[in-house]
């Protein structure tokens, strides 16, 4: 079992108000699964992705990744997993505003100590794959929303992570570029990687093998396509 969530609860306390973002999620994901998470806005999709991506920790419940309890790992170990095992495409991209597209994509490689020349070559290749060959030196504020999204995708792929978590990776893309990105995910899936993506579009979800629907922090439906 690659990912095993048991009764995962996430609560946020703002003042005296408690917000139940996740109210007990049970979910097992095998290696090389291709899963889509759907659900209305505010249903907890991003929260769940953050927990699966080792960025956030559950308020209660357990998360085992590769049979290891993530709750017991220290910050640096988590950073290492985020760097090596997981490629995360954030809903709001999270690119470094002052760095070029190329440098943004190089970032994960910098933190795993890849030598400069190799790093550059890999980053360029990843940007070419998402169709940004001629935008490498541009900064995020010089790129369109869709182009930024593709930089974020390139950054998630560059390190060849075994798990790809993509939070609405096609949200800002036209159908054609969206399809290109989906083809990219599909070929990664064919290579044996595990892919989890959040989407609002049924036709995007169709690409996956399994659709999990969330509502109010609970799994409403979990079915194969």
């Amino acid at each position: 079992m690659l990912i095993d969530l048991q009764n995962v609860v996430k609560e946020y306390t703002i003042g005296s108000e408690v917000i139940h973002a996740l109210r007990g999620i049970n979910m097992k994901i095998e290696k090389n699964e291709y899963m889509a998470i759907m659900g209305p806005s505010g249903s907890g999709k991003s929260t769940l992705m953050n927990i699966v991506g080792c960025l956030d920790t559950p308020t209660s419940g357990s998360y085992r990744l590769n049979a290891k309890d993530v709750g017991r790992m220290d910050d640096d170990r988590l950073a290492e997993i985020r760097n090596k095992e997981i490629g995360f495409v954030f809903q709001n991209f999270n690119l470094l505003p002052r760095a070029s597209a190329l440098h943004n994509v190089e970032l994960p490689l910098i933190y795993n100590g890849t030598p400069p020349a190799e790093r550059r070559a890999k980053a360029e290749k990843a940007l070419v794959r998402v169709g940004l060959k001629d935008r490498m030196t541009h900064r995020p504020n010089e790129l369109s929303g869709g182009q930024r999204q593709r930089v974020a995708v390139a950054r998630a792929l560059v390190n060849n992570p075994s798990i790809i978590l993509a939070d609405e990776p096609t949200g800002n893309l036209d159908t054609r570029t969206g399809d290109e990105i989906m083809e990219l995910f599909e070929s990664l899936h064919d290579q044996g990687n595990t892919i989890i993506l959040v989407t609002h579009e049924e036709y995007i979800a169709e690409h996956s093998d399994r659709i999990v629907r969330l509502r109010d922090g609970r799994v409403e439906r979990d079915e194969a396509t």
Partner: peptide, 8 residues
């Protein structure tokens, strides 16, 4: 961002 991407 740096930490999310793996900076220790």
């Amino acid at each position: 961002i740096r930490k999310a991407i793996g900076a220790k």
